[in-house]
Simulated scan of single mutants.
Amino acid sequence: METQKKVTVAGAGSWGTALAMVLADNGHNVFVWGNNEKQINDINENHMNSTYLPDIKLPEAIIGTTSLDEALEGVETVILAVPTKAIREVVKKICATAKQPITIVHVSKGIEPDTLMRISEMIEQDGDSNILKDIVVLSGPSHAEEVSLRHPTTVSVSSKNMKAAEEIQDLFINHNFRVYTNPDIIGVEIGAALKNIIALAAGITDGLGYGDNAKAALLTRGLAEIARLGTVMGANPLTFAGLTGIGDLIVTCTSVHSRNWRAGNMLGKGQKLEDVLNSMGMVVEGVRTTKAAYQLAEKYNVKMPITMALYNVLFNNQDVRSAVDALMSRDRKSEMDDLVNILQATK
């Protein structure tokens, strides 16, 4: 296990707090930085984050702060646990405040619409090269609610600098939280982002009452879409058979803990997108990512029928049942075609 370090988690949501618990369990001094003073006071006075992880007692080694100066003083590693849309703003603040080189470990899952950048690319673009030492991504099948209960969880870390990834592996790994390394940062980030699209669709089919057959088909064909796009973008297809591919897909598409599944479920039951998002209380990354994936499919000329159907539901007001009917009425094809195309894309 790593020697004791000061580590800062930027973002006091459920995932950031759960990861802070893992780090505290490993003997590190953990600062959680956030803007909500009431929430930070709850962490410090009650050792709770009642807003996002009710009934979970936090280790006393976790200290909340609204001061970024305090949070970054003497820190070498920052865990970036904020929504995709806030990444650029927070990275700029961190780089403007830090007085020493830092490694940023991002744990968010998304792709930026229009720029079509992965999160590590966004961080690299907006980060100060004099401050930003390395960028690492931590991802995998991991609900914050279960990590906070110290249930067995496995994730992957990846980076352009695998020595940095191995250091983060050592920082987090313990008998409840197992960490693997994967050199394929493109595949890790693409799998993590696109599975939220399939989770939204899975929630819709469950909301419609279509059962297990439909969900099995959706997960299988959804994974094919993810791999099809990912390999064209330079990912290793084997990554999509791992934790950040099929692993993350399974957990996000089958659990009530998944906010993307819950949002899709509400859409499937007839609720409007605006009402669903207003009622969630947390960011549903799959909505923004659906737009980005739709744009990526057009850019790379990759067929992504599930993504296309969901895009029409979310942004063109298509009825959910008619969207599913359209998917089922597509021209017949061979399942082997996808596998051949994915293999050819890697040559």
Rank of each mutant, 00 (worst) to 15 (best):
A192K: 01
A193G: 09
L194S: 13
N196I: 09
N196H: 12
I197H: 01
A202N: 04
A202L: 08
G207C: 06
Y210K: 09
Y210A: 11
D212V: 12
A214D: 02
A214S: 06
L218Q: 02
L219D: 03
R221S: 00
L223A: 00
L229I: 05
V232E: 04
G234N: 10
A235W: 00
P237C: 09
P237M: 05
L238T: 11
G242F: 01
L243P: 02
G245E: 03
I246N: 01
L249Q: 02
L249I: 04
T252L: 13
H257Q: 14
W261E: 13
N265I: 10
N265C: 13
M266W: 08
M266Y: 15
K269E: 14
Q271R: 14
L273V: 15
V276K: 08
M280P: 07
G281W: 06
M282H: 13
V283R: 07
V283C: 03
G286Y: 03
V287P: 04
T290S: 12
A292G: 10
A293S: 14
A293K: 06
Q295H: 09
A297R: 01
E298S: 15
E298W: 10
P305C: 05
P305S: 07
I306R: 00
T307E: 08
M308Q: 14
A309E: 05
F315C: 08
V320L: 06
S322V: 15
A323E: 01
A323N: 07
A326G: 12
